[in-house]
Design a protein around this nucleic acid. Structure first.
Lengths: 347, 347
DNA sequence: TTGAAAGCGTTACCAT
DNA sequence: ATGGTAACGCTTTCAA
């Protein structure tokens, strides 16, 4: 490269320029802009350096820094099953991650990577090559081999979300706790025969997750002398009709439903209304996952259980930050937040 | 730095290693891994290099490349008014951008940056410092000064979305075309008195955008001898009630409504149902923006107009790619896609 | 507290 | 077609 920098591009000030203006060495400038080393420099010198930097409009070049340190400022968020999640949830996630990441001077790289994706491995390779601080691998379709790849490529911190592979760090949504919260609420309101509603077609991962949910529900309902019915539904009006048919067919049918998503509950409610059944008098409904717009729009508005996504994201970034510095992460960061019950009119 | 690389980190193969194994020079390796230069190398040599690389698990280090080229592989997506957009829309955006970006070997950095954000300028500085290929600035609250900052910091390609600042490259949603499409549809169905429905409280940017929408509507409705009524609404059940009241108060009220978002139309429909009014017989409704879940869930399902987000994202990445290479972007990439009308039962 | 200098992995120029 | 080699901007060690 002959000219100072790429042809027609703006020439940005470097630490050398700052050093010159401040009348110190490059090393000093570097020290001032490094949290770890700053304390080595007298505050008078620091001031000089900051002044010079401000005057020139200098900012540490993240690329140079990354190359030198062998680590970039990026935290990569890799979502493996983008279609499984509510876009609303994913967005909240990304936003919350970013909030905390920025506080700690990290940036967030977002990568959606469908399981089916032809070049999945290739793309993962590209992602893992970026010397990021840490990688958040979301979704059940992350395999052992993929985690091994990340390790081999030198990714320092790997955190799995909603998945467990070997002994890797892993955090989770308080899914079971959320269902339990819902069930307890219904029990408190006097319901004894409760149905839980989930999707008709489940992948193997969701399947096993459902198993855990069911047993956690039993652990709440059984001791109270309650009974639990399983309901499967397609998220369509026809699906809702079929479910309500099945529900009412039983001689002594459940008096309350825990639905796994707003959309399902919404459809059920409307189907009930059509048949002249009242919510919650004839049948109570509670929505166990997410608290999106639809819960409010439903009629009557849906009681729902949510988890504090922001708290999880906050913890996640904390974990990555700590581990990447070789520190022991605070055990509390692994504790899923206590689900929040939002009581509305449907229960 | 004494040891070969950061303490406990994995040592990744470099182009030197590959060169050694392949029995060629580093430059040759570099050429082989550079699309621009590959043609200089005999295919026999290329094969040798690729074999060595594969054997060692070598991948070009994006950080080293970025430093050397003075440009990273990142396209930054900066959303200034995250709350204004439907999360569904934002997600589709990001996903679509990423799809095209990956095809062209770029990566996507996502940054949400509320207008109110205290450190907004500081954060923008951090973002613009990353030597990215291009920046996509979304939203009306991007100011001239901010664009100037980007320029000053050497950002090569700046594309504004849904905003216009100076003579910067700018692309837009076909908002006006979408409303026109909706209006035409209603006229074709014989409606002559049409109302358009928008938000009660609008910021200055949305305000001026509304102006353009209104005049574009007139240009369609007036020649057909139709009349246009304005309706403002709060997106709540009470808001819907008020609007329907106002609507029916007029002696000869509109027979159709263009609503600006699914949520609004949904609420209106339900309010009408409560009063025993039929859709579309008594009042037709069409949803002018977005085609989210809610349109399907509404009863009757809402006819709606959508824009092909993926196409816009595709064009956007194409533009950045072209401009960053000093090429003239294809004019077609600036043409907003023709809106798509999805006829459902509400019209 | 500071200066000098050796990397980090890549690109691109200049020879050969 | 290929091999040296000087950037790129920063961090960090070692001496002073």
């Amino acid at each position: 490269m002959k000219s100072k920098t790429n042809s027609h591009s703006v020439r940005r000030p470097t630490s050398i320029d700052v050093a010159k203006v401040a009348g110190v060495s490059r090393a000093t400038v570097a020290f001032v802009f490094n949290d770890r080393m700053r304390s080595m420099i007298s505050s008078a010198t620091q001031r000089k350096v900051f002044q010079a930097a401000r005057k020139l409009g200098y900012h540490v070049d993240p690329v140079g820094r990354a190359l030198s340190k062998g680590q970039s400022d990026e935290i990569s968020f890799v979502e493996s099953d983008p279609s499984e999640l509510d876009p609303f949830v994913t967005m909240s996630w990304i936003r919350a991650l970013q909030l905390r990441a920025n506080d700690l001077n990290y940036s967030v790289g977002v990568h959606f990577l469908p399981e089916a994706s032809k070049h999945r491995r290739e793309r993962l390779t590209g992602i893992f090559a970026r010397h990021q601080v840490g990688v958040i691998l979301v979704g059940g379709s992350v395999t052992r081999a993929e985690v091994a790849l990340a390790r081999k490529m030198g990714v320092r911190v790997i955190v799995l979300f909603e998945n467990q592979v070997g002994r890797e760090i892993s955090i989770r949504f308080p899914v079971e706790e959320m269902w339990q919260t819902a069930a307890k609420h219904l029990l408190e309101r006097g319901h004894r025969s409760v149905a839980y509603l989930h999707r008709e077609h489940l992948g193997p991962v969701s399947q096993s997750s459902l198993q855990r949910v069911v047993s956690s529900l039993h652990s709440v309902v059984d001791p109270a002398g309650g009974t639990l019915t399983e309901l499967k539904m397609d998220p369509t009006p026809a699906g809702a009709r079929a479910v309500v048919d099945a529900l009412l067919a039983a001689p002594s049918h459940p008096t309350a439903i825990c639905g796994f998503k707003d959309e399902y509950c919404f459809l059920i409610e409307r189907e009930l209304a059509k048949r002249g059944l009242r919510v919650p008098e004839d049948l109570a409904i509670i929505c166990c996952s997410g608290d999106s717009r639809l819960c409010e729009l439903s009629e009557p508005p849906l009681t729902s259980v949510t988890a504090d996504l922001e708290a999880i994201a906050h913890n996640l970034v904390n974990i990555i930050d700590a581990v990447s510095h070789g520190k022991e992460p605070n055990p509390e960061w692994f504790v899923p937040p206590v689900p929040r019950l939002i009581v509305r009119a449907s229960s």
